[in-house]
């Protein structure tokens, strides 16, 4: 294992200390492994919280900020935070208008957020709504879309729900828009090397030196095939065609796209993918709005990339373009 760390046990807490120290105008540590926005709460604004395991920065904690999320409960690397941490995050951000819990669709996180919602209802009478983003098209078939895992596309749901809350939409409306963004985004990924959980010290899965895995999940969940490494254009084509089969785009559509590094893949290679993506979309007659290319949702030091496509309408586009400010996404 080659990692920059002190004691693996302190990996998460020292990472959070550093994040808050670097950006004190954006993040504030509210309680143990609970990060909220710096500054005062806006009375009457719907709160939006997320949560999940560490190891994916900027997801999840990074997206706390103006026009985005209000708070985040942080777990160990790839492990769900506890329901009590989530409940504490909800309490911290509630400004009287209720709280939306918006997170990735993983069993432990779903159970704990549901429990947290019951807890704040029982003890604090805080109204909550929940939405689990499930954008990874290879993790389950279209007829079982509700079983899909949440990956990079969830940042679009954060952005759109965050913008709606900033405009003082009520809890039901913020939830509706979060679900709408989430229903309109699809993602697919591929990996060339696995990642290492600091406390384990060894990779959770293996990929041979001359191979890659198409469709691998962001915790190393098995994908659709393992085999020789394909060219960038072929990779992009396979991912694009899979997404296109799932949620077909036609001439005149508008989309935002995210070409995301899973950690180790350099920007250069992301732009080689983007080049092909732009060509494919142009060929279809689909317009790209606010493309994102970079490290937006990672899996530690995994080499690989994900492609996410969000289909826009006027309502979603206005919210996507609304101002936002966190350390990783400024609009």
């Amino acid at each position: 294992m080659k990692k920059i760390l002190n004691d693996p046990q302190n990996y998460v807490d020292e990472m959070l200390d550093g994040l808050v120290a670097a950006h004190p105008e954006i993040y504030r540590a509210h309680a143990h492994r609970v990060i909220v926005r710096a500054g005062e709460k806006k009375p009457g604004k719907v709160g939006i919280v997320t949560g999940g395991g560490s190891g994916h920065l900027p997801v999840f904690t990074g997206y706390v900020g103006n026009g985005l999320l209000d708070g985040c409960a942080i777990g160990n690397v790839f492990a769900s935070p506890s329901a009590e941490q989530m409940a504490e995050t909800i309490r911290a951000v509630d400004a009287g208008a209720g709280v939306l819990c918006l997170y990735g669709n993983y069993g432990g996180d779903v159970m704990n957020f549901d429990m947290a919602a019951e807890m704040v209802d029982f003890e604090d009478s805080i109204r909550t709504r929940s939405h689990a983003v499930a954008d990874d098209v290879v993790s389950a078939s279209l007829d079982e879309a509700e079983k899909r895992r949440g990956v990079a596309g969830m940042i679009y749901a954060f952005k759109i729900a965050g913008a709606a809350a900033e405009r003082m939409a009520d809890l039901d409306e913020v939830t509706r828009l979060a679900a709408k963004a989430s229903d309109n985004v699809v993602s697919m990924g591929m990996a060339m090397t696995p990642c290492i959980i600091p406390q384990l010290g060894k990779p959770t899965s293996t990929i041979a030196d001359d191979e890659m895995e198409m469709g691998m999940g962001i915790h190393g969940e098995p994908g659709v095939w393992k085999g020789p490494i394909k060219s960038a254009d072929d990779l992009l084509d396979e991912m694009f065609d899979t997404l296109q089969k799932d949620r077909p785009l036609t001439a005149g559509d508008r989309v935002s796209v995210l070409v995301n590094s899973l950690g180790a893949t350099p920007l250069e290679e992301l732009y080689i993918l983007y080049r092909r993506l732009a060509a494919r979309l142009a060929e279809l007659g689909v317009k790209i709005v606010m493309p994102l290319v970079g490290r937006y949702a990672t899996s530690m030091e995994m080499t690989g990339a994900t492609l996410s496509i969000l289909k826009l309408d006027d309502e979603l586009e206005v919210l996507l373009r609304a101002p936002s400010n966190c350390a990783f996404w400024k609009v």
């Binding site: 329901a83 069993g107 432990g108 429990m115």
Partner: peptide, 11 residues
């Protein structure tokens, strides 16, 4: 559940 966030603890 705060002592153990395992799924059994949450159940």
């Amino acid at each position: 559940q705060s002592v153990s966030s395992s799924s059994f603890g949450t159940l």
